[in-house]
Write a protein that binds this DNA or RNA. Sequence first.
RNA 1: GCUGAAGUGGUGGAAUUGGUAGACACGCUGGACUUAAAAUCCAGUGGACAGUAAUGUCCGUACGGGUUCAAGUCCCGUCUUCAGUACCA
Length: 946
Amino acid sequence: MSNYHFNEIEAKWQKFWAENQTFKAENQSDKPKYYVLDMFPYPSGAGLHVGHPLGYIASDIYARYKRHQGFNVLHPQGYDSFGLPAEQYAIQTGQHPAKTTKQNIRRYREQLDKIGFSFDWSREVQTSDPEYYRWTQWIFIQLFESWYCKQQEKALPIAELVLIFEKEGNFDVNAKCDNNQCFFNAESWNGFSEEKKQKVLLNYRLTYLAETQVNWCPKLGTVLANDEIVNGVSERGGFAVIKKKMTQWSMRISVFGERLLSGLDTLDWSESIKETQRNWIGKSVGATVEFRLQHEKEEIKKLTIKAFTTRPDTIFGVTFLTLAPEHELVAKITTIPQRIAVKEYVTSSAKKSERERMTDVKNITGVFTGAYAKHPLTDELIPIWIGDYVLAGYGTGAVMAVPCGDQRDWDFARHFDIPVINIFKGVDISEQAYTSKENIVITNSDFLNGCSYNNATDKAIEELKKRNLGAKEINYRLRDAVFSRQRYWGEPFPVYYKEGLPQMIDEKFLPIRLPEIEKYLPTESGEPPLGRADSWAWDSSKNKIVSNKLIDHHRIFPLELNTMPGWAGSSWYMFRYMDALNKNVFSSKEAMDYWKNVDLYIGGSEHATGHLLYSRFWVKFLKDRGFLSVDEPFKKLINQGMILGESAFIHRIEGINKFVSVSKIGNLKTQPIHADVSFVNASNELDTEAFKNWRPEFKDAEFVTEDDGSFKVSRDVEKMSKSKYNVVNPDDICEQYGADTLRMYEMFLGPLEQAKPWSTAGITGVHSFLKKTWRLFHSGVEDSFFVSDEAAPKNSLKTLHKTIKKVTEDIENFSFNTSVSTFMIAVNELSVQKCSSKEVLTPLLILLSPYAPHISEELWSKLGHKESISIASFPKFEEKYVVEDVKMYPISFNGKMRFTLELPLEMSKDEIESVVMSHEKTIHYLDGRPPKKVIIVPGKIVNIVG
RNA sequence: GCUGAAGUGGUGGAAUUGGUAGACACGCUGGACUUAAAAUCCAGUGGACAGUAAUGUCCGUACGGGUUCAAGUCCCGUCUUCAGUACCA
């Protein structure tokens, strides 16, 4: 007796794989390499639900497939273990995040192991492990020690920049750096104090400390990067975010804007993710225009307001300027009568949260500064306004307003009665602005009259350049990323402060470990949690961390109190896997030269502008500095769709502890309450006893049932989450049906990239397929293992090769759902054919093993193999077994007679010809005359035009 | 508002470059086995009409047009849904 005992089989083989290190990848091999990576999980306290493994199953199928094909496959896994939830939990319970993180990781590992992934766990990484984050800190130091040279389009060591400064000052340095730079020659550089030099260099470094407008989230007590804010609220928790000026570490990602943009063209990613990144980078080509100020004070007359525009062709349509309320010149230029109004406006817009600003979009607000600027080409005076439709963070924070050509300028002008000049010939702008660039003829514009958009743009820029009041400019939306977090559970910066200036700790003293603290909250004086650490100062003579009571500012200095953001550790982990145990470098050159970059990366699309952009940035930087040899981290990207939960709702009559089954609700006033989905079966019937025992308040609940006595709930699709009681644990599925069923069912659910609700309804179909497969290898009478050595009948070989072809194509296209169907068809056909031939069953088993590794491995060993099935080579499709019968359809009698011949793809040219010839007679018979012309479309359809 | 993706039975979803729409699975119906249930196996299952029946005819891929011998697939227009994004000058 030998039934399919999946639990035993799976436990047995998981143990075997672990003991034999079956999936350990070697860093040296004659085989070609292939690197399959999943986005590593954050180990949350809730554990895995059935949605998490979806991508891992897909990548595992692909990894196993590639191993069968003879590739040396790197398929590692690890944990992104720094993050907010562990810290929030620590605040509530006082438990050290390291402790809860460790527990969560153990639980994740147990759950992952049960699904039978072919991960190489010998390379596991954890971003919160000091042996890992020492290298995150090391990369930070390298960024600090680098600047970006525009000429070479490359990051270079800052020491080289210092040499240039010492020799010739900064006049000829073409660096990407902060805008408000002053120039100096070698002499003045050499005369600068050390402090001044460091301040100047901060403007060039790729990570720098600066006072900037940041997104401050008071509820989380930390600043956030732009990608961590969704719809004006924090991504985590959904709390309000306001703009605030703070001194923070920033990453000069903006200097890589162009390369991050052009690099996208080389990547095999979905168009939508590429488009999202393009929008995020937001390149726009235009010009800067400078407006001199007209003012009673001489010193202000010397100043200019710079505005960025994409429409230099409309320069003669400018009737006012608008500055962002935060613009630095606002206070200087405002005239005395306007002061109160301006001040009020500036403070009120500073108080607005991002959210309020966004909902206020339609309200036109602004105030006149009282000041005027001179038009650069006509010298006419134009009023300067401030308005919060102008963003401080984009362009120069100033807009040259052209009401006739921009809807927002038009609205603003109309609202405040500012004159409008129409510079478009034959266009009516009385109702709205004319924003198109196509087919326009410029008028009312002096030397631009009669020009098209292109012409006018070129001419206008030329003229501005001549007057030294403007130039062509490319502007990016991409901002430098704020890198400090006022949090505990993150990488400490390897930084201490000497006279207020940041100093790097020498890399040989890394890692700088997180200090112990008692409470995970900001200090009473508002410092980040690290301010609570008693020993958090750097003794520069002993090169170690000492008590901060000793700080003397001569040799014992305060350490940085902020920590790094979540994306620091995840921006480079794909390279650590290549050489995870290396103690000397973040990853050895040999390992990185061998594995290069990730061939296939699978993960959710929610990281489109965060992780996926930041890691591209770090890789480009590390490449520039010669630390690695590739330009992009992830060659191919697949975004698996989210698996949603099917929440169950039980309806309570308002005010009383009585529940109504769905069809009995009628006009009753009821309130839907989430019921745990584990109490509900596939036909939406609630286990009322289980529900009563769920919580004390339901103990005495009464139920109004259906006529048949059952109690039904309603269903709704929502995101899977603990709070919605719709979480399905993969462990339960493994227990009941086995990991192989879970794996195949998750794939069968639908296309990989599509979001879909989890429903256990169809799982029996997949499960019984596996049982059928098992039976195929067992004789009917005694039900014992049996395969024959006899040659396979032709029809079974045909079934096999059809399956090989389809499954191979499906894996290559990531259409895993259809290949499950293909397997089902194959097993049904072979059952009908009563095929027991080894010749067919062995290749079928190999074919199946990426999807259902445990059952395949068990049957494989029963066939007498000692080695794991994973080393068997993937069966190859053989054409000769799939030649189908040729079918022929008369299509229509429409003056001419046409026939369609269906021919198998695999037929050779000779065969096709013979088929066509053999069908000529039929054509002759129906048509009454021989065919005149034969059109052959190879492998597909043959049109015979008579 | 803009950008992107998509609309196919009762349900999830198949359908290479246009070529027998609805594969496969769930569900449902009927049958076999069983004292019975579960499990398992077998058959049927888009709709309408005709026929005792085998079968045949017509209609069907959001809606309206178009191209083609042939359209779920290509083109134009409309509607709907989902996702992303949001004053970007």
